[in-house]
Design a protein around this nucleic acid. Structure first.
Lengths: 369, 369
DNA sequence: CTGAAAGCGCTTACAG
DNA sequence: CTGAAAGCGCTTACAG
């Protein structure tokens, strides 16, 4: 027996007085192995701290017990400033993998570059989870390549009808509707939408459509002057809202396509001296951890990242095992905090909100146009 | 040649009219391969979308081109509520790995359970990065096991003299000193410390010692009644600060061992009607993204996560390649925002801060004892 | 219930 | 500069 180096299955076999195949079977809990023999083998393996070489077993058995998570973002602004929403997805995907006995490889990639989504091709992973927003036109091409290569993958994002592969996503349409309904119920009438509103950003676009549907259901017409594009960063939210304010079209509420955008929007509003929610009510989307810590705490539409991570992993595993699998749309939940003016505002100190808001917006217009 | 399935190096060899060994050499850029032959091979490989099987190559070559990141936390409260500081470390470690051409496996583990830090034993990774705070007494045993097994690892955390393995950490002592010096320079004299202050939490303990050193240098004696233990969560910060307030010992400043604790502390302070910074100045540690969004924006001691991630990866790679490597202490930087009262407080509306703070704390005591 | 043998797809001496 | 051969450490039919 070898003294130095890590033991292999032959070493264990030799010590246990059985063949190497029996060791392999015993270690993997194969049912035909004699119970007593198995115990003996396991004891020796434990004592020698033997761990089966995964490269050898993956090579032979053709599966790696590993999943890959690809996170991509528009311009990877800064190493440490990853979208917090993706971060919490990452957490739940990691936990879900662990529960299913899989390891997780992760990689951050810029959508603009050529991804190396080769983890499955090179047999490092059995399948891939795709997480990120980006230009869908760009993105779709990548998905086509994955489909063509027969890669197992699931993506987080809008569940579309002409789906390439499977998606797990949230019900962005209903979410957008709920956000707008909430603002309407509070008497807001001139509701801005900050976020990309084109098919290039399907998730945001669905939220925008939900918003539009809610307005129309209330007898209002969405005003194109009250929509400004923004990707999901605080800076984009700040800049888009500044643009919106410069336009001078009055508004008394703002629905941001993401919390990051909402936080940037609140900063832009504050820098113009506008009060949230008194002058402008603000709703976000995602419910990132920061949302409850900003001032005022942000009312937002929560996505269930825990469930999403679980479903992403389960669906991918089904795909890998050739079990039935399908795209799933998760419900979104409105989380009411204080950025829309619930439970605030004694009537004496704060005049009626709608009026105030209009006045505020009008004041902003005067100040900045 | 096989029609279905993925091509292997023999398929490429056959098409290129060379031996399989030459294909292998060409693909890895071996210098002895004829330039023209190499081009031919590369062209065919590209065309067939050939990717070398990593399991086979890792098995044969004995290295996996993969690093593992183990993140552990005290009680994994909730899947999606991972300590944001670790999350930003995770981001920078991932990017650093990518820059060095390594893949990254990640795993969240509870320190209380048996870790499976077996990634290297089973040849899935060439080395391990350890990230997390937890009871160091517990932790040390795990490190001993790693050392004994000859595992390559680097940990993030306090750089201690009786180090097991290598650590990359920040200069917690200087950081704590800077935080306390800042408060002292603003005239605060009764400075509380919220966070674990024992050798079981070496990082926090170093910060506590820096704080103590600063007080003593200013001729003050740290008051044990002004220290309360807390792990790095918002809830722990809230509860510890509540305990502190109940004790009734007056204080005009609070140094939290982490931003999460500081945020919890500010919530506890606010719930007692105490104003930050007027009544109590607050400093945190880490500079997590949330720090600049809380109200008031948190003054804190920033750790350079980007550099830290880079050094963690570089040091581990040096260890793996048997190159010289050492533990490193990174400088910490005070980031002044508004939670300590810089650039605030026109003298007319706010009475001198120290007095106010004392009054505030005293008021709190009266209210809650 | 167990063993002998083949083979997964590479890398790496070795020989030429 | 190139090829034939061995071998990494497993899993998996196949035979008994």
């Amino acid at each position: 027996m070898r003294i130095k180096g890590k033991p292999n299955s032959f070493d264990i076999a030799h010590l246990a007085g059985v063949s190497q195949s029996t060791v392999s079977r015993a270690l993997r809990g194969h049912p035909t192995v004699n119970a007593e023999t198995r115990e003996r083998i396991l004891a020796i393996a434990r004592q020698l701290n033997y761990k089966a070489d995964k490269n050898a077993s993956s090579l032979r058995s053709k599966h790696s017990g590993t999943l890959a998570l690809l996170i991509f973002e528009d311009p990877t602004v800064d190493d440490s400033s990853i979208n917090p929403f993706f971060l919490s997805m990452l957490g739940s995907v990691t936990h879900a993998c662990a529960r299913h006995g899989y390891d997780l490889l992760i990689s951050f990639q810029e959508l603009s570059r050529n991804w190396h989504a080769d983890y499955e091709d090179c047999h490092k992973a059995d399948g891939i989870i795709l997480l990120g927003y980006g230009d869908y036109l760009d993105y779709r091409g990548r998905l086509e390549a994955l489909v063509e290569q027969g890669t197992h993958f699931v993506r987080w994002g809008a569940v579309l009808t002409d789906q390439l592969g499977l998606s797990i996503g949230c019900d962005n349409l209903r979410g957008g509707q709920q956000a707008a309904d909430h603002l309407l119920a509070l008497g807001r009438r001139r509701i801005a939408f900050v976020g990309n509103a084109s098919l290039r950003s399907p998730e945001f676009f669905e939220r925008y459509q939900g918003y539009g549907a809610a307005l129309r259901a209330a007898g209002l017409t969405p005003d194109a002057a009250l929509q400004v594009d923004a990707i999901s960063t605080e800076l984009a939210g700040f800049e888009a809202t500044s643009t919106l304010l410069q336009r001078g079209t009055p508004f008394d509420a703002l629905f941001a396509a993401s919390d990051l955008i909402a936080i940037g929007a609140m900063r832009a509003l504050a820098s113009r001296g506008l009060r949230v929610p008194a002058d402008v009510a603000v709703v976000g989307f995602d419910d990132i951890p920061m949302a409850s810590f900003v001032n005022p705490p942000l009312t937002t539409v929560q996505q269930d990242t825990r469930r999403a991570g679980e479903l992403l992993v389960e669906t991918l595993l089904n795909l890998i095992h050739d079990d039935p699998a399908q795209s799933i749309k998760l419900p979104a939940t409105l989380v009411v905090r204080q950025s829309c003016g619930i439970g605030l505002a004694p009537a004496t100190s704060n005049p009626p909100r709608v009026a105030t808001a209009r006045r505020g917006a009008a004041a902003a217009r005067r100040r900045h146009s």
